[in-house]
Design a protein around this nucleic acid. Structure first.
Length: 486
RNA sequence: GGCCCCGUGGUCAAGUGGCCUAAGACACCGCCCUUUCACGGCGGCUACUCGGGUUCGAAUCCCGACGGGGUCACCA
């Protein structure tokens, strides 16, 4: 039988990383098995409707390389794929359940329920719907329906015995039935609840494998009650461990670390994000860590899914990102990094191509680039202490000598010859003749022209990037500072 | 609180009764390379939550405790 998986997000306007990983596993498994990956939008909560939210879902999935085979915009044989457009489809199924005694009309108002819940809590009890309306005589139900009283349809869940099911990751699960609530199937606004629509749609769309977050582990028995009441086959369940921020918290909106867009804006590559995400809760069983989407499809295996929640480690993601950047084509790097250079160097006449060569191996996340290169645009204020470096055998005294040595050499280079080779050769020749150590000359020079302890590239590269005029100007600044510190 | 799940280093994790005086990766620390930083190379630190069993033998199986998480909506 063809494998059919689905990703069924509700359009909130953001793609949560946990959701993205769920989508990824669904996609990988479907592709691995030569099956279909279906996208269904679960928007049964009309109060939560957000403009443009479905586009966010489309863009994210496509941006990550996960194209769905069936979905709202691409169609398919089981549409529509947006639940609000399927609205009229659910009620008949609910009524069928009422007929067969698996469900019933309930006229309790939200107000009444709230009061009962609070009363139960006050007594220290766990609230559970008391099946009040199940006991209503049939005539009264008909009468109130005819009268136009507001109603919902509830599942008539068993109160005794226990329910079991098998999960591909967690194994055999058993729950006492008395913990099952008579969940609402059809809401007062006529819309199905998520719980109900989910089951109906999964069945109607022929979903064979339901892969979703582990938070659904304990509500699954209720879904099974529905499948059984209809006489439908229960799909394979594959519950996924949560993705956490730390051992106590899931990734959250508040900390700005939960959404796909948060990371894209910071300058993380989608390939790195997907690669890393695939490894939180799953591993290939060997030491490999780098995977393209096709490779993931090839090696993905449900049996290697973990049970324990995994913490999303930004440091590791950052390492992946840096590795992906090092391995990427130079041209693509240049294209991506250019706007980040522009933030601090626009109009400064800097050789972006050369700067990019220098920066590529040093870039971990793109949003760190501006701070790393800003000194090229403007000499930062710095302390004279920077001239002191024990290992380079430099101190202000040495620095004065070094700068005095370099200045005429650099001044003597023609504007037209201002390139790294010439700068390098003249400087090295001079240093060799002076008898000073390379570091003792080059360290102060780099400090003078950059104003900071660490830079992408050494003195020669920076001097080249700065240009002759600016390099000389900065050396003069350094000399003044050293003179006044004497 | 009831029910359910989970428990190998700071983090991700391999490990399915002997090959474990427990792999690998990130992070961290040290050394080397070197005109800084980064890259790269080499090395180091750190773990089977605890207590009982079962067994010739347990990280691996069982029970309990403890710890953490999830779930108990006319949200999804």
């Amino acid at each position: 039988m063809e494998v059919r998986t689905r990703f069924a997000p509700s359009p909130t306007g953001f793609m949560h990383l946990g959701g993205l990983r769920t989508a990824l596993y669904n996609y990988l498994y479907a592709k691995k098995m030569g099956g279909k990956f279906i996208l269904r939008i679960e928007d049964t909560d009309q109060e939560r409707y957000v403009e443009g939210a479905t586009e966010v879902i489309y863009d994210t999935l496509r941006g990550c390389g996960m194209q769905w085979d069936e979905g709202p915009d691409v169609g398919g044989d089981y549409g529509p794929y947006i639940q609000s457009e399927r609205k009229q489809l659910y009620l008949p199924y609910a009524k069928q359940l009422v007929e067969s005694g698996h469900a019933y009309y309930c006229f309790c108002t939200e107000c009444e329920l709230k009061a009962r819940r609070e009363a139960a809590e006050a007594r220290g009890e766990v609230y559970k719907y008391d099946k009040h309306c199940l006991r209503l005589p049939k005539e009264e139900v008909e009468e109130r329906l005819a009268r136009g009283d507001s109603w919902v349809i509830r599942l008539n869940a068993p109160t005794e015995g226990e329910s079991s099911y098998h999960d591909a990751v967690y194994g055999d699960m058993t729950f006492p039935n008395d913990t099952l609530d008579d969940m609402v199937l059809i809401k007062a606004d006529g819309m199905p609840t998520y719980n109900f629509a989910n089951v109906i749609d999964d069945h109607l769309m022929g979903i064979t494998h339901v892969m979703r977050g582990a938070e659904y582990l304990s509500s699954t028995p209720k879904y099974n009650l529905l499948y059984e009441a209809f006489g439908w086959d229960i799909p394979e369940y594959v519950h996924l461990p949560s993705v956490m921020r730390d051992s106590h918290h899931k990734l959250s909106k508040r900390d700005g670390d939960a959404y796909y867009s948060d990371y894209v804006e910071k300058g993380y590559l989608t390939e790195a994000l997907i690669n890393y995400l695939a490894l939180v809760g799953w591993n290939p069983g060997d030491d490999r860590e780098f995977f393209t989407m096709d490779e993931l499809i090839d090696v993905f295996d449900i049996s290697r899914l973990n049970k324990a929640p995994g913490i999303f480690d930004v440091d590791k993601l950052t390492w992946f990102n840096a590795e992906y950047i090092r391995r990427m084509d130079f041209d693509r790097y240049l294209e991506i990094v250019t706007p980040w250079f522009d933030k601090v160097l626009k109009g400064k006449n800097i050789d972006y191509h050369r700067l990019a060569e220098l920066m590529k191996d040093r870039t971990e996340v793109f949003n760190r680039v501006p701070d790393m290169v800003a000194f090229l645009g403007e000499l930062p204020e710095y302390s004279v202490d920077l001239y002191t470096h024990k290992k380079m055998k430099s101190n202000p005294e040495v620095a004065r000598t070094a700068l005095a040595l370099c200045l005429p050499v650099l001044e003597g280079i023609d504007e037209a010859d201002w390139n790294e080779t010439v700068i390098h050769d003249r400087l090295m020749e001079t240093i060799a003749n002076s008898g000073m150590k390379n570091g003792a000359v080059l360290w102060p020079l780099r400090i003078a022209i950059s104003g900071q302890a660490s830079t992408p590239g050494g003195a020669m590269e920076i001097a080249y990037l700065l240009g002759k005029e600016e390099t000389l100007r900065r050396i003069h600044c350094g000399q003044e500072m050293l003179a006044s510190a004497e």
